[in-house]
Design a protein around this nucleic acid. Structure first.
Lengths: 221, 221
DNA sequence: GTCTATAGATAGATAGAC
DNA sequence: GTCTATCTATCTATAGAC
């Protein structure tokens, strides 16, 4: 434990541990997202920071723990963005659309996060299970969905048999797929789901779909 | 070019090239799906076949081309399954549900394919672009969607502004996410999307959602 | 805390006999 | 077409001086 009150020394060498840690995490995020877990190179990460490979092992212990730290920070950023969401004053239908669009925009703006999530799943998400922090942090978005669904049911506009976690899965699946699978989809169907010219279209389509599901009569067949 | 008419020699050594190729592809499919592209080991693939590593390079040229061959076969299997789909006699709503359930079941039954698709996307799907076969094979499912949408529009039950490729993306996204991202989703929301006990629920939810979207009035807000 | 140098293991790919 | 042996490169991780 060294002094916490020494952010940097003007003119001198930067010895701020927190800053170094953050820089490593920034670069590691890019490298893992670019090349996958096995494809990522600790040497490459070190080369692109102002520190050395030795320090990565010093701070994080190893590649595995470094990836866990990268994931934790990425999910923490998602939670922070979700906490900015304010749907007070909106009717349930508008609130659901607002929420869906926030999640949509998050995926659009952070393709690195999408790739990291894909990598984590490919490895069984043991990094998340191993992280005491991540599993218990909760989801601001899910809290919003719960409240909005309750309001929508009460007003009679929403189906009564809808589960909040399912709604989150429905929204996330489309947002994730659009970014993560755009390459195969484009190769197979000749359409770029992530084309900026179509962003508004898919943003609206997602909201329409979720609202249609929530407000539908139970299908006849 | 050797003789094509020599499937195997009873009692003797198996020298059927097609059979050896197929065996390599089977094992390689499992290994790539298990460990990812970089994580997969050519040694490991060879060890689990009756042939040797040398033959893998002899038949396929290298790891990269082997993965391309694995992908091609996986997508070909998808196309074959889709060609079994028969929706004649069904009204458009029932036909859409049947189609969605077929795609759902495909993902459920072939998690390896889901993982391979994820790997291909992580690598920019260059394997598909590089494959003359895959890009131009077309999609039986998409053909069905086109026909069903036209019928649904004609009967006045479906929205007129719906695109067939978008419907395919909507269906696939949920099916893909449910399998591919089940680990992070479970860690974050404590729900296993791929739990067999919930399979019917999500199968129905998918059909409900797509039908709700297709039959919805244009949302008011 | 930071650096250089290197250990130790293993990968993809190939040579060359048969 | 099939085998054994091996090349060459490279990766994660660490030792040890300062």
């Amino acid at each position: 434990m060294t002094s916490v009150d020494e952010p940097s020394r003007p003119g001198g060498r930067d010895r701020d541990a927190a800053r170094t840690r953050a820089e490593i995490l920034d670069v590691a995020t890019q490298e893992f997202a670019r090349a996958g877990y096995d494809g990522a190179r600790v040497d490459e990460i070190a080369a692109r920071t102002r520190t050395t490979k030795r320090m990565i092992y010093y701070y994080f212990g190893g590649k595995e723990q470094l990836f866990t730290a990268v994931l934790e920070r990425a999910y923490e950023a998602v939670r922070e963005a979700e906490q900015q969401l304010d749907v007070t004053g909106l009717d349930p239908v508008a609130a659901v659309r607002r929420l869906a669009e926030l999640i949509f925009d998050q995926h659009e703006r952070h393709p690195d996060f999408v790739r990291l999530a894909g990598i984590a799943n490919m490895r069984g998400a043991e990094h998340i299970a191993a992280s005491a922090q991540l599993g218990r942090a909760g989801s601001p978005a899910l809290d919003v969905i719960r409240r909005v669904l309750a309001a929508g049911r009460e007003s009679g506009r929403f189906r009564a048999d809808v589960d909040a976690v399912d709604v989150h899965a429905l929204i996330s699946s489309f947002c994730f797929f659009r970014i993560a699978n755009r390459h195969t989809f484009r190769a197979l169907f000749d359409r770029d789901l992530a084309d900026p010219a179509r962003r508004g279209h898919y943003r609206t389509l997602l909201g329409d779909t979720v609202i249609a599901y929530l407000t539908a009569e139970r299908p006849a067949d």
